[in-house]
């Protein structure tokens, strides 16, 4: 076995998508990486911010408030395909429950418990009128792209989801 395999390693994941299925994949990979002793960072930007947003309406300007109607939280985001106005979300949740798959909010809590760093993109928050207090308390920091690059530059695993 390669001795480098047990050295300190890092993983960084950009979560751009706000679709339930893609966010789920991101959290499954993040929790597994953290469980494998890999220091893991998730960088939430644009639609991905829904995964770390509280269930609150956001925005100050008219456009930001309109967007807020479609900007959900981790329990209400729908799948990337077959959402059918929310029916798909309901159906997938039911199917996953039948198979005893860990729910998305539980996966996020598990990531937090395992010490996964949750970073929020400052610029997309500004554009959409999302304030720090609209995000869950466990968010580690609100940062820019350079912070992500600094993390990714030290990472052996980088993903964009």
């Amino acid at each position: 076995m390669n001795e480098h395999e047990h050295e300190a390693r890092k993983a960084s994941i950009v979560v751009f998508s706000g679709d339930m299925d893609k966010v789920m994949a991101a959290f499954i990979i993040a929790t597994t990486a953290a469980a494998s002793g890999i220091e893991t960072t998730m960088f939430f930007t644009f639609w991905g911010l829904q995964a770390i947003k509280k269930r609150v309406s956001t925005g100050q300007t008219l456009f930001q408030r309109m967007l807020s109607l479609f900007f959900k939280d981790i329990d209400r985001i729908g799948p990337s395909k077959l959402n059918m106005g929310g029916m798909g979300r309901w159906m997938f949740k039911k199917m996953m429950k039948q198979q005893n798959v860990t729910t998305l909010p539980e996966l996020r809590q598990m990531a937090i418990d395992l010490g996964v760093k949750l970073l929020a993109c400052q610029m997309s928050m500004e554009v959409m009128g999302i304030r720090r207090e609209d995000l869950i308390d466990e968010v580690t920091d609100v940062v820019g792209a350079a912070t992500y690059i600094a993390e990714a530059n030290q990472s052996h695993i980088t993903l964009f989801i």
Binding site: I28, T31, T32, A34, A35, S36, G37, Q99, N100, V101, T102, M110, L114
Partner: peptide, 14 residues
Amino acid sequence: RGLKCPMPVVKTSQ
């Protein structure tokens, strides 16, 4: 038992 991916590995690590 009964747990699905990734929980067996996550629980093992804990």
